[in-house]
Amino acid sequence: MKKLSVRSRLSTQLSLPSTSDIAFLLLIFFLATTIFDLEQGIYMVLPGQQSQSVRVRRDNITIVKAYADGSITIDDKAIAVSQIRTIIQGRLARNDKTVVVIETHPDADYGLMVDILDELRLAEARTISLKTMLGNGVP
C-alpha cells in the first residue's frame, strides 16, 4: 500500500528569542574591545623666538646631565634615576628658586630625558630647562 506523502510547511517566521543572545554577544565584544583613547603626556612650554634670555644666579642652578651610555649626573656626581626626586626635593626645600637644567647628550636615548623630566615633575620642580650637550659633556 502506498503511503500518502505529507507536505511539510516552511515557516516564514524569524526566531526572535535568539536576537537578544546575539545582541549580548555583540555587546560583550564591543565592551571588551572599546578603548577610550586618551592623549597623555608631559606638558611643557618652550621659549619662543621672541623670548628674552634670563640671567640666573649660579647658586640657583642644578644641572642634571644625561649621557649617551645611560648614566646620569647631578652637578657632576653620578646618580641613579630613582635618586633624582629625593635630591631635587632637598635642593628645592633649601632654595625654592632652584632652576633645574636637563643637559642631554645628542646620542642619549630620548626615553632617558623623559625619565629625568618625570622625576623632576614628581619632585615638583617648576622651572626646568632643556639643553643639548655640546661635545662629550665631560667638564
Binding site: Q40, Y43, G48, P106
Partner: peptide, 19 residues
C-alpha cells in the same frame, strides 16, 4: 632637539612629550 629648534622657529612653544 632638532625638532624642538624648528618648533621654536615656528613659535609653536606648547609641547607635550607623549608617554
Amino acid at each position: 632637539s632638532d625638532v624642538m629648534e624648528e618648533l621654536k622657529k615656528a613659535n609653536a612653544v606648547r609641547v607635550s612629550f607623549t608617554s
